[in-house]
Design a protein around this nucleic acid. Structure first.
Lengths: 222, 222
DNA sequence: TAAATTTTTTAACGCTGTTAAAATTTTAAT
DNA sequence: ATTAAAATTTTAACAGCGTTAAAAAATTTA
């Protein structure tokens, strides 16, 4: 009998472990989407993945490690979405970004809700470290504000760092309120964009400020 | 022997139960302040209060009931603070309110941090019901914005309901970030007031807008 | 003082995350 | 191909959790 793969070391073993690891994370996502992060118990997860609890500890780790692995995936996807933010104007850039995020969340709303709640709860989005997730995602709105200032859309009375932080805060709060079930994804869109346009209006030059008011009125009418 | 209190029914019994209830809640607060809400276990709480677990269930209820009782107290205190908000101008009113809140949180910072996190986690601050905590606290900023519009400080291009909601959001986000340990109480002050002044600036008349810019600069220098 | 009522405790259930040790499976060497 | 070595999975267990029924103790009423 000819060997299927004449690999030098640990072919079937490594492959099986990788497959099992994927199964575990996939089932974990499903369970979280179905009944929230608190309903994710190691034993049930093991049963659904067709193995036993200690195997999960061996392949991935404890409950916090499972969450960390899932959040890592999400952050990667969010980074891709943020990198695609390229509207002509500042407000288009932000609007596209929020809409893309909402569309992305809509693909598995229950799962993303639970994941963000669990992530916040586990301190995975901490703001102190300069290399953390928070610091990374904050860069973009700051740069967008700086660019808007150069385009003479903003007066520059408020430093881009301050304005960008507030804008990012508007997105975070809307996301949290959505995740907590206070409103749906359309509410998230409206709430996030209202906050962002309001922040921009605070430092806007007259013409751009009127434009922001129009955008805000348009949002209200949704 | 003369009876101490010739009460008609259940004097010592009722009094003892009330005393025990207070002891339980007091110890619960201490435990939360010491090591967070997750470290609050019924058995440990019972031990510290000098009784057993089922008694807690009898006098107060389960873990969520304990939290609800504690949150009820906090909300009462916050309502008092909010009702004392009476500055001459809008921004003074908000500034006094934020500062009073920060001072109040400072009296037992660890406890309030844990309580807000637990409250958020338990859905006690839900936004849908018209009679809920959220709806109640939202009224004040909306009214303050409406008053500022009448004083011709705001242009009125943004409805007071929209502006007030955003302002309340700025406070909530700052509170959450503080509770999550992202910054200290001074950070809370700065973050909340920056957001609030920014919101006001978005709809401000020229003179008031410049005043807001000055306030923002002053905050940055802290 | 005795009976009735109410509160507290004892004891237990089913569940959780996690880990040591045993059993099994896969790899390497003869 | 067979056997020895290594690595992975499972069995079994620990300590802890929230919660509840039933027994014990305490208080009130008659």
């Amino acid at each position: 009998m000819a060997r299927e793969t004449p690999d030098s070391s640990g072919s079937t073993r490594t492959k099986n472990m990788a497959r099992r690891r994927d199964t575990i994370l996939r089932e974990a996502r499903t369970m979280i989407a179905e009944s929230g992060f608190d309903a994710l118990t190691i034993r049930n997860l093991a049963k659904r993945a067709g193995l036993t609890a200690p195997t999960i500890y061996n392949l991935i780790g404890g409950k916090s490690d499972i969450l960390a692995a899932i959040i890592r995936d999400i952050v990667e996807q969010l980074q891709i979405i943020q990198s695609r933010a390229d509207g002509k104007t500042v407000e288009e850039t932000f609007a596209k970004q929020i809409n893309d995020l909402a569309d992305h969340f809509a693909t598995d709303e229950a799962f993303y809700k639970a994941a963000f709640i669990a992530g916040d709860r586990s301190g995975l989005f901490e703001q102190s470290s300069q290399e953390g997730i928070f610091a990374h995602f904050l860069k973009q709105p700051i740069e967008a504000c700086a660019a808007a200032e150069k385009q003479k859309l903003l007066r520059g009375n408020i430093p881009p760092e301050v304005l960008g932080l507030q804008i990012y805060g508007c997105y975070r709060l809307a996301r949290q309120d959505w995740a907590n079930g206070y409103f749906d994804l359309n509410g998230f869109r409206k709430q996030a964009l209202t906050g962002i346009f309001l922040c921009l209006a605070a430092d806007a030059e007259p013409l751009f400020r009127e434009h922001m008011m129009d955008q805000l009125s348009a949002l209200e009418r949704v």
